[in-house]
C-alpha cells in the first residue's frame, strides 16, 4: 500500500510540482496517471521511490515512511520498488543478462556484487524474468543489439528480477511504435495480474489508459483533479483534466495485433 499524505513539492525556481496530494494506492492495483506534460506526473511517480525529493508531507509504503528513510534503510525500501523508464536506461554495452542481474544489487553486499559473485539462484531468477517477457533467448546478446521494444522488455525483466512489490513505469511506451507499445503494455498488465504487483504507469495516450488501467488519476498543474475507476473516466473527465478538448495525437488508435 502506498499512501501520500499532504505531499507538496516546490522546485528551487519556485514552480509548484505537486500541490497537497493525498492518495492511497492499494496492493495489486493498475493505476494510470494522466495529465499534460509538466502537470507533475513524473514528479509524482519519482517521489514514490525518492528519485525526486518532496518538500512537505510524507509518503508511506506499507506503513513505513520512505520520506524519513536514510542510507541502507532507503535502499532496502527501493529494492522493493521496480522502475521502468521512457528511455529504458539500460547499459547498452553489456549483455542483457547483466542488465537484468543489476536489478538484484539491493539483495547483496556491495563487495559481493562488485566482484561479480552472483549466486546461481540470482542468475536463475534473472533468466526466469526474461522468460516471462519472452526474450530468454536474448540473454547473452548486447543490450544495444535489441530493438526498442525488446529493450523495454529487458527493463521490465530487471524490475521482475528485483522481485519488486511495486512497479513504477514513467512513460514506458513514449519511445516505442504503436505495435510494440501494445506488447509492452500487455506485458505490464499480465505481470500485474499474474504476480499481483502493484503497477503505476504514466501515460499520455488516453485510450491506452482506459484499456489497461483499473484506476485513473488525473493531474493538472500539480493538483489531483481526478481519481476514480476507469468506468468513470469519460471523455468529459479527460477534457477536464487537460483543460481542453482531447487531441488526436493523444490517442494511440487501433493497431492490428501481429
Amino acid at each position: 500500500m502506498i499512501e501520500f499524505k499532504k505531499v507538496r513539492k516546490v522546485y528551487p525556481n519556485g514552480t509548484v510540482g505537486l500541490d497537497n496530494i493525498n492518495l492511497t494506492i492499494h496492493p495489486g492495483e493498475f493505476v494510470i496517471i494522466v495529465g499534460l506534460s509538466g502537470a507533475g506526473k513524473s514528479t509524482l511517480l519519482r517521489s514514490i521511490n525518492r528519485l525526486h525529493e518532496i518538500s512537505e508531507g510524507e509518503i508511506l509504503i506499507d506503513g513505513k515512511s520512505i520520506t524519513a528513510a536514510k542510507g541502507a534503510g532507503l535502499r532496502r525500501m527501493r529494492r522493493d520498488i521496480g522502475m521502468i523508464f521512457q528511455n529504458f536506461n539500460l547499459v547498452k554495452r553489456v549483455s542483457v543478462l547483466r542488465n537484468v542481474l543489476s536489478g538484484r544489487v539491493g539483495y547483496h553486499s556491495t563487495l559481493r556484487t562488485l566482484l561479480g559473485l552472483w549466486p546461481k539462484k540470482d542468475v536463475e531468477i534473472a533468466l526466469e524474468a526474461l522468460s516471462r517477457v519472452n526474450i530468454r533467448e536474448k540473454a547473452y546478446a548486447r543490450a544495444d543489439e535489441l530493438s526498442g521494444g525488446q529493450q523495454q522488455r529487458v527493463s521490465i525483466a530487471r524490475a521482475l528480477a528485483q522481485e519488486a512489490k511495486i512497479i513504477l513505469a514513467d512513460e514506458p511506451v513514449a519511445s516505442l511504435d504503436p505495435l510494440t507499445t501494445r506488447q509492452v503494455m500487455d506485458d505490464l498488465k499480465r505481470i500485474n495480474q499474474e504476480l499481483g504487483i502493484t503497477t503505476i504507469v504514466n501515460l499520455h495516450f488516453l485510450d491506452l489508459a482506459r484499456e489497461y488501467g483499473t484506476r485513473i488519476i488525473g493531474l493538472r498543474a500539480g493538483k489531483l483533479v481526478f481519481d476514480g475507476p476507469v468506468e468513470e473516466a469519460t471523455d468529459d473527465v479527460f477534457s477536464e483534466i487537460y483543460g481542453r478538448k482531447i487531441k488526436k495525437d493523444e490517442l494511440l488508435g487501433d493497431v492490428e495485433e501481429a
Binding site: 521511490n49 528519485l51 536506461n89 543489476s102 544489487v105 556491495t110 530487471r158
Partner: peptide, 21 residues
C-alpha cells in the same frame, strides 16, 4: 548516458554499485 545511474539507484543500489553497474 545518466539514465542507467538512475535505474540502479531506483533498484536500491549503493553509490559504489551505481558506479560499478
Amino acid at each position: 548516458d545518466e539514465g542507467p545511474m538512475e535505474a540502479i539507484t531506483a533498484c536500491g543500489g549503493s553509490r559504489l554499485q551505481v558506479l560499478w553497474f
